[in-house]
Amino acid sequence: MKILVAVKRVIDYNVQVRVKDDGSGVVTENVKMSTNPPDDNAIEEAVKIKESGKAKEIVAITVGEEKAQETVRKALAVGADRGIHVKVGGAIEPLAVSKILKKIVDKEKPDLVFMGKQAIDDDCNQTGQMLSALLNWPQATFASKIEIKDRKLEVIREIDEGLETIEINTPAIVTCDLRLNEPRYASLPNIMKAKKKPIEQLNASDLGVDVSPKIQQLKVEEPPKRKAGIKVSSVAELVQKLKNEAKVI
């Protein structure tokens, strides 16, 4: 079995994001960047499947600017066999990413495509579902457990009401939830080895995909700030304030 894992480079989840003064976006200069957290879960799951002997090859792919390659390099250090970097400049929408991924899927013919359920920058939660639609493949979104049963996958999905189990035939798309597994850290020897693994570089235009945005970002602003609150000194004072001042209980 062959697994394609899509990863995205985003502002690190620990960074307090700041909006640019001119309202054109958020500050990304000199800000720590990392792999989108649930994409780390996607890589981890693929590596675990390969370690169990059920997959032969893991290909990591990213779509983005020059430096996005770092996320592929990290995936290689964790256990992916080779990488693909499709270069695009500037922001790219999930629909365009899914069209690029479809071209790669047509060429690579993976049995499974894994990715995080949502990118923590644009919070769109679209790419996996869109790719499934374009391929007309089954989709298992928000996966917190994956079991491989021959040519089928049993997937537990996290939904608002609790948990849902579905069975999907491969080839299929799985979008990974943060509780799917505990992503490992790359060891130093593996980081060194990853430097020798190949990363194929392509341009979106080589693939014949139009990546021009269909959504115009008119402005980006700070959300309204909350008024500073107060500290209370006792539980009795808290309950009194909730009852008589805030009038919520």
Partner: peptide, 19 residues
Amino acid sequence: NTFGKNLMPRIAAKLDTSQ
């Protein structure tokens, strides 16, 4: 919510719409 998040992109992609 998880219902709409799961469903809508599948519709949007088929309609070639950026959701």
